[in-house]
Design a protein around this nucleic acid. Structure first.
Length: 204
DNA sequence: AGGGTGTAACAATTACATCA
DNA sequence: CTGATGTAATTGTTACACCC
């Protein structure tokens, strides 16, 4: 039989190479599953042979490590090597794939959770920085207001001066320096630092 | 084209074993 | 003894290939 299941599966198993993803999950109303009866006639005579022994599990694990998918040829070979029914080998692989998938999902969840936590921390840091900057901006605005008021005061005392002249020292002529004790106002220090005006550096 | 059938894979569930 | 947990096995569903 030229069954091209692999071709179809290749498209749907991007997440877990070697393992087929679920077909479209059944959604909507889920039909009640028939319950299996307890097997009261279970083989109570001698060993139940339910648990696989360590050697069998080791070999199965090794094989699973190489390839999660189990072709029928490999299944039969493994089964005869392990002295198991091929059906048991198939079931073991099926269950093992389910466990592996669960583990991967858990890992993925942990990764996403960590990533989310980091982002939350970063968000907090950014928010506190925004608060700080807002505070600085407010201080700077207050400072501007203060200076502006001061200039207004100066212009009231000397009718001939104007705001533009006050803000533009070269036009103050020979009285320029005497009129202002606080030279820093128009001649910032070397480091350009003005208390409460740190923000201005952002634009310089 | 489309319905029937077989097959393989999977999720969900059950049954049993083991351990604290 | 009992509940929790792990795992082998079963059941039901889905998608696909193939045939008529």
């Amino acid at each position: 039989m030229s069954y091209k299941l692999e071709d179809h599966m290749a498209l749907t198993s991007q997440l877990y190479p070697g393992v087929f993803t679920q077909m479209v999950p059944q959604q909507g109303e889920s039909k009640p599953r028939r319950r299996r009866k307890k097997n009261k006639d279970a083989d109570l005579s001698g060993a139940r042979k339910r648990k696989l022994n360590e050697e069998q599990v080791n070999l199965l694990e090794m094989n699973f490590g190489n390839e999660h998918k189990l072709e029928s040829e490999r299944k039969d070979k493994l089964a005869s090597e392990l002295g198991l029914d091929p059906r048991q080998v198939a079931v073991w692989f099926q269950n093992r794939r389910a466990r592996w998938k669960n583990k991967k999902l858990e890992e993925e969840y942990t990764k996403l959770k960590t990533s989310h936590e980091n982002i939350v921390v970063e968000k907090c840091q950014l928010e506190s920085e925004v608060l700080k900057l807002k505070e600085q901006l407010s201080e700077a605005e207050k400072e501007i207001q203060r200076l502006s008021d001061r200039i207004d005061g100066v212009s009231t005392n000397s009718p001939s001066s104007s705001l533009s002249m006050a803000m533009d020292p070269p036009f103050l002529g020979e009285f320029a320096m005497e009129g202002y004790e606080d030279a820093a106002f128009y001649m910032p220090p070397e480091n350009n630092y003005i208390p409460g005006m740190e923000w201005i550096n952002l634009y310089m």
